[in-house]
Amino acid sequence: MTQEDTKIIVESSPHLRSEESIPRIMWTVALCLIPSGVMSMLVFGPATVWIIISAVLGAVITELISCRLRKKPLTLMDGSAVLTGILLAYNLPPQSPLWMAFLGGSVAIFLGKVLFGGLGFNIFNPALIGRVFLMASFPQLMTRWPAPFGIDAATAPTPLAVFKDGFANTNILTQTEIINYSYSDLFLGLRGGCIGEACILALLLGAAYLVYKQYITLEVPLSFIGTVGIFSWIFSGSGFFKGDFLIHVLSGGLILGAFYMATDYVTGPITKKGKLVFGVGCGLITCLIRLWGGYPEGVSYAILLMNVVTPLIDRFTVPKRFGEVR
């Protein structure tokens, strides 16, 4: 080799990179959501698959067009658009029309991501932006819940909606009776609700793998769920400390939201301490909405509201400088 041999590459250190990459993380999360999708197919019927596919298509096509229009390299393969589509579909009722799912995916990517400058610059979780947009635009379609295994598409209210009505009538005895579902039904997802939020077991399976791969950490989910549990134990009963916190933890979109959406990197805090604060905040807002707000479910709004405070949390949870005595 001579000095003029320009085949040698010189780069500054480090010369070793880990195997992790954005596409790998995104596709893995998408993969971990599959069990829940399969369960929804079994419980609500095969039509849910088409809803998921239309939402993903809406997201992907919008991403494709916007990349072209902005003359930026195509970012489809990093999987974030697909993931947004799946997450949005999981937040839709099982009988949503396909056009609505498509529109939701498209809005999620355009309003939630592209307008901010693409992946990494968005301040709100795109999938939740999509969901909230649909909630505001088509409230009736967004709250039509079929009963599990419903053959004739009979509608049945979600456990939380039943609970909300029952909560007003204080003369009802125990809360499991109000909602007609047992804890194991709730855990396995045999209840009304959004496509992907029902089966806790399937969601936890996927989340366990993500934790094992260190793609998500437990700070946000645990503090989120823990806060909801404690808060509802204190306030959701007929007196203080008499609430049935298991119902609140197991129903609604809490598990999906806590493990898959509140843990979103881009819109959540950076440090461990910040993540704890974020989780507790999400939990508090969720309970406020569930117990005293206008909607039966508050996870989406809670996460979106906490996304707004993320920069503030980051500012106040800067790690202590090494070697500094304070």
Binding site: I9, E11, H15, R17, E20, I22, I25, D78, G118, L119, G120, F121, Y265, V266, G268, P269, I270, T271, K272, V318, P319, K320, R321, F322
Partner: peptide, 26 residues
Amino acid sequence: TAGFAEQPCIRCGRCVDICPMRMLPY
């Protein structure tokens, strides 16, 4: 030595967790 295209930060926080000097690399 495969060259990597630099992408925007997705704020995953791995660099903050790993930094032995407790800085904010991102």
